[in-house]
Design a protein around this nucleic acid. Structure first.
Lengths: 229, 229
DNA sequence: TATTAAATTCATCGCTTGTTGAATTGTCAA
DNA sequence: TTGACAATTCAACAAGCGATGAATTTAATA
């Protein structure tokens, strides 16, 4: 009506901040994260999520739209945090190595450490997220799209650093090794419990410190062997 | 009626061999394998399997029982073949190395080669099976149970060989490294297509030869580094 | 050919799914 | 207090699910 009023004359209860869905929104995301991580996209019903989050089913659609949009939101939420942690760690390693190139070991460490730290945090949601990451990374349906969308840019940063540390390597060498690293990492932190049975007690799935401190030399040695000839 | 007749006097059409479900049974298993590999257990409906196999839905239950029994059957079918191939390769390596212990490289090769060969066979079902393996290996629901049931005995054989090649290593070292290998292997051969996008064409998911020939030195170097101190 | 049972199809059951529009409740602004 | 709108609940929808018992077809025996 009033051409001068660009903002609608605000009346009634104001909406919350767009990004802040409040406590119930958090509950929904946490419940969805845990269930998606355990059973995958199709193994989870919105009613199960609602039940675990302690909210009505319809509220999920109201907040997050369709089921697949909820899935996207859950996956995106911690991807940002994880990547930021990795990039900060990589930058710190760069500072310390100056003016030399960062060593392969330090690069791998920067890549792995934020995930290992997250696993030991009081926020148990990170454990679920790691399992979700394994599910998506190994899925032909979700993998290329979601991993690409949220992790390819990060991969470029680390590949670039590795290229400086291993100047005689080809792109194919680097990317394949990066892929091996990704597979070893996601399965290990997926915490499926398989290694417990397989090793008859010698290893525990939730002993992330043991997994982490061996993975760095394992992966580093692999990179050196393949990319340094 | 006749207490003397323990066997019913056989008349009419005799049943087929118990294990032989015929061509339609094969079609069902192949269709289920492909769909389960792509979409996971809950992402596949029996109607989709029936449709792809060109049979009626009810026939699946008639042949294979419930949906989860079908899933078990699909997974078990090639697990036997794969393990047999690995054990034969390991035994051949043992013969060639005598009286020395088999080298780490040869052990890894025996572990990887049957899968790489299967990928290149004319039977495209193996590609699907590799993706299914990745799905199950990374699933907290299916992983411990199915992987344990079909692959733990094989793991013991290879761990034993590795222990001889790396006499200074602890059980924890060996099992963790084995786990890293398993993760790298299953993601790589899952053929999700992620590396194609990530590497901007430098690598192709279906180039199993490239993946295979780099994975052997990568994994071997990792084992030496962690288990040989 | 008549008999028998396996192989296959058909129709349907009870239940769950994601989604949505209407109704209700709660809370801030006027 | 009242009007307005966000937040939340409720009830129901059409579609699809796994499963199954009955009916039908097929083929080997007698």
């Amino acid at each position: 009506m009033a051409a001068t009023a660009q903002k609608t004359p605000r009346v009634g209860r104001p909406p919350k901040e767009a990004k802040d869905k409040g406590e119930k929104g958090e509950n929904i995301l946490n419940a969805a994260e845990e269930l998606f991580a355990l059973r995958g996209y199709d193994g989870v019903t919105l009613r199960a999520v609602a039940n675990q989050a302690g909210v009505d089913v319809a509220l999920i659609n109201y907040y997050f739209g369709s089921k697949s949009q909820l899935f996207d939101t859950v996956f995106e939420r911690r991807a940002q945090v994880l990547n930021q942690g990795r990039l900060v760690a990589l930058e710190q390693a760069r500072q310390q190595a100056q003016p030399e190139a960062i060593s392969v070991e330090k690069i791998i460490e920067a890549y792995l450490k934020p995930l290992a730290v997250a696993q030991d945090s009081e926020d148990s949601g990170w454990k679920n997220y790691c399992a979700l990451l394994a599910y998506i990374n190994n899925s032909a349906v979700w993998g290329p799209q979601l991993m690409g969308k949220h992790f390819n840019k990060l991969a470029d940063s680390f590949i670039e650093a590795l290229k400086l540390a291993l100047p005689h390597s080809s792109d194919a060498d680097l990317y394949w090794c990066y892929h091996y690293m990704s597979g070893a990492l996601t399965l290990t932190f997926a915490n499926t419990g398989r290694i417990d049975k397989m090793s008859k007690g010698a290893c525990r799935s939730d002993d992330f410190k043991a997994a982490y401190e061996r993975m760095i030399p394992f992966i580093s040695a692999g990179f050196h062997q393949v990319c340094n000839k």
